[in-house]
Design a protein around this nucleic acid. Structure first.
Lengths: 116, 116
DNA sequence: TTTTAGTACCTTGTATTGCAAGGTACTGTA
DNA sequence: TACAGTACCTTGCAATACAAGGTACTAAAA
């Protein structure tokens, strides 16, 4: 049992929220999504992102348009459907509730942190 | 793809943090742990908790003492080892970082929330 | 023309974990 | 002796992050 591993596990389900949030802000494509996640210090690999986008697409939460680009192959620009927006809102409230639950169970830790 | 399911996925790894935090606050046993999680609106089933406690025990992060109890079978009272305390601190900082990453990627959503 | 570098797309298989569903065993009471 | 309540545990499944591999397009260099 090691921290790095648990760190990965903690992200399960959360990436969906982040990726939907990013796409809902602006139509975008995979490499750019990875870059934006990286800015927020969330390192996501292609092998993670592509299957995730496919799942969201299949579930009708995302759609995409092909767009040409200079000096590179065409890109899939994703956007969030109405259904996707609802889902995103639900995810957000689930996440908010999880954060508040964790805050309650880790009160002690937070106190220690403040004392330092 | 449904919200309930993703909600479960979001808990992966987080339960370790919460359970270690609860035990670190006070020696306690499984049924009581479940009750405390429930207070924080985290519904955890026995089939989740027992394997988790076993893993943490095997990894040397937890130990336990048997204690008699009135009107019921003996209980395993768990406590966090020194190694477990280190691990807990690492989990806490991973969690804090995840929260801050999610906050960054979902800025838009939070703004919407405030406007309501 | 051929090769290389960069970008963009995708798939397969593995490890991990939450949980449903089932079970055993101890205590005190009816 | 039977039952209810508590406490413990196991097996098998579903879901997801990711390592590791691959294809295909563009443009510039050899």
């Amino acid at each position: 049992m090691n921290v790095e591993n648990t760190k990965k596990q903690m992200r399960k389900g959360v990436l969906e929220l982040c990726i939907l949030a990013i796409i809902s802000e602006e139509e975008t494509y995979s490499t750019d999504i990875i870059a934006k996640l990286k800015e927020a210090e969330l390192i996501v690999k292609e092998g993670t992102l592509y299957p995730l986008l496919s799942r969201l697409k299949t579930a009708g939460l995302l759609h995409y348009n092909w767009r040409e680009s200079e000096n590179s192959p065409p890109r899939k620009y994703y956007f969030v459907t109405e259904e996707g927006t609802n889902f995103l809102n639900n995810l957000w409230s689930s996440w908010s509730q999880l954060v508040s639950s964790v805050n309650l169970t880790t009160k002690q830790l937070q106190t220690v942190e403040k004392l330092e």
